[in-house]
Amino acid sequence: MQTPAPVDYVRATSVADALSLLQQHGDEARLLAGGHSLLPMMKLRLARPEILVDINDLDELRGIRIDGNEIVVGAMVTHAEILNSPILFEHYPIFREAEKVIADPIVRNKGTMGGSMCQADPAEDLSAVGAALRGTVVIQNAEGRRTVAMREFHEGPYETKVADGEILVEVRYPILPGSGSAYEKVERRSGDWAVCAAGACVTISGGVFSSVGIGIGAVNAEHFTAVDAEAFLVGKEPTAENIATAAQMAADSCDPSADQRGPADYKKHLAMELTKRALTRAAAAAKGA
């Protein structure tokens, strides 16, 4: 079977320790979280770090909690924990809907939010969710912490704002009282990466959309979102026609490429169809709808 290339291993005892280890080893070091993105790459020898800094002992990176008007999800929170979190489910059912279709139950036991987000696969689901929810990523380095909006987090496929010597420590999601949210995904088979996925989080007030967040994955949507479609809907009634128009705008803003998951025309169609479905369900779930 496939085996990783030789590598050194060290366990960090704290975030500060991890940061100092990263600093010490520079770009030859990689953080090891759940390992479900990194280790397969290492086995294929597509990744060959010289040293792994294991951060699984860092309890300070775990936990889902409410802090003021934000929900804070630690980087080392596993997908299974997100799936089963009552806090997240209460405020954002989109998490449960997305997590149910991320990989499989065993992978979700181990894979972490931070690991998934830093791997930054273009089809990564929590990136689409985070875009829809307008989350904020908290990154720590030797100098301290900085924040980056989810919608500015990605630099491109597999590239994020987390630089060498930095750790993504948590993501903060603003609580939107009365919001409705939903996630739609088409995959070739359960556990597969998305052919296309779309999430929506909306609030409705006075019969019109008061806020709209759209997240779209796997179809090369800029920053996993569709700002024109969002802007179009704000202030409009949640009618099928308005939602369809917005969904089409969202699809038009995507630039998918063909691969074995499907041709570009199909993926573009899915961007429309799934955005429409997610918006429709989110609108129906929003209080005041």
Binding site: A258, R261, G262, K267
Partner: peptide, 22 residues
């Protein structure tokens, strides 16, 4: 009959399966 192939069949343009999807 993957999702894309089925959708394309409905459009009257099913996918040629043995080669890479373009």
């Amino acid at each position: 009959l993957t999702p894309s192939n089925v959708w394309r069949a409905i459009q009257g343009n099913p996918i040629r399966v043995d080669m890479a999807i373009e």
